[in-house]
């Protein structure tokens, strides 16, 4: 099997040496023994990021419900206990940012957090207010990643975000899309804009981005976040009706969620996948995908064919 991912410490050193190509650094077996999750470097900074992060769409939009907030705190606790890093949210997700912020505070702001949220408004001026609100809700003075949500007014917001990055008020910037929407425009942005991250939909059943966008991101040194890894839940519900294929054991998968996630994060251009869950057991299953062997190119082809045939 090909370990297409690298350890945090070694990734960082490798990234310093060959920063633009660091995401293609060859696998390193040494790290696995220390129990830490597999990481990949963010191409533009070299900083290692665990290959499985988490999303918050629906799962963390629970409002002021104290019972649900307790349950989400447990989910975040499990995430960080497994070495989780990126949490992705958006002002579009109702109360998700507020809930994440309150859970983080209850967990005494765990180490390793990579905070990623979005700006989602058609007005450039309002974007600044929205970002300030997000910082307040997360309880952070500086966010790690700000993305233009669904390319909404990306021209205006990217100017704001670039200026913020230049003066150090945000660490990295990017754009997002999903469901395969507006890929031609996204390609144009990847070609012309100095962004650190692109977020798009990529999973074993939605693979359009393999043709152009993933190679383009790799070529431009842009980190890729894969959203909707389980197609919002429908993909995993569908495959779970079938027994786990024999090859799943070869890549240390005990559950379909790990098969689906390992398929995504073993693509050389993908930096991390961000499955969303409201359950601790699912979080533990998902985070286990950031451990053990990863599929090589041949097995990835077989995985896709087998899942398509289910």
């Amino acid at each position: 099997m090909d370990r297409s991912c690298v350890s945090s410490r070694r990734a960082f050193l490798a990234a310093l040496a060959v920063a633009p190509l660091s995401f293609l650094v060859q696998p390193d077996k040494a790290w696995a023994a220390d129990g830490q999750p597999i990481t990949k470097p963010i191409p533009s900074t070299g900083e290692p990021l665990p290959v499985v992060g988490m999303g918050t769409w629906i799962s963390f939009n629970v409002g002021g419900d104290p019972v649900a907030r307790d349950a989400r705190t447990d989910v975040l606790r499990a995430f960080f206990a497994a070495g989780g890093g990126m949490i992705d949210s958006s002002p579009m997700y109702g109360t998700a940012e507020a809930v994440v912020g309150s859970c983080l505070a209850r967990l005494d702001r765990p180490e390793g957090l990579f905070s990623a949220t979005k700006v989602w408004t058609s007005s450039t001026a309002e974007g600044l207010e929205q970002i300030a609100t997000s910082e307040r809700l997360w309880g952070l003075q500086r966010l790690d990643l700000l993305q233009v949500h669904n390319l909404l007014n990306w021209q205006g917001h990217l100017q704001t975000l670039s200026a913020m990055k230049a003066d150090g008020t945000v660490r990295t910037i990017g754009v997002t899309t999903s469901h395969g929407r507006r890929h031609a425009e996204l390609a144009q942005i990847l070609e012309t804009q100095p962004i650190d991250f692109v977020q798009l939909t990529y999973n074993i059943a939605d693979r359009d981005v393999e043709a152009r966008l993933l190679p383009l991101a790799a070529e431009r040194g842009i980190a890729v976040i894969a959203n909707r890894p389980f197609q919002g839940g429908s993909l995993i519900d569908r495959v779970k009706r079938h027994p786990l294929p024999g090859w799943a054991r070869e890549i240390d998968c005990t559950d379909w969620s790990q098969v689906l996630l390992k398929f995504i994060v073993s693509h050389p251009a993908v930096t991390c996948a961000i499955p969303a869950t409201s359950r601790v057991d699912h979080m533990e299953q998902n985070m286990a995908a950031a451990r053990g062997d990863m599929p090589d190119a041949a097995l990835r082809r077989r995985m896709a064919a087998d899942v398509a045939a289910l």
């Binding site: 939009n61 629970v62 409002g63 419900d65 649900a68 997700y93 058609s122 669904n150």
Partner: peptide, 26 residues
Amino acid sequence: MDLLSYSLVDLIPFSRETYFRLFERY
């Protein structure tokens, strides 16, 4: 807002459990 690019599912950002709990809390 670019409403046409959103589907119905995009406009329901909560789960059934959260919706039902909303009425309990309310």
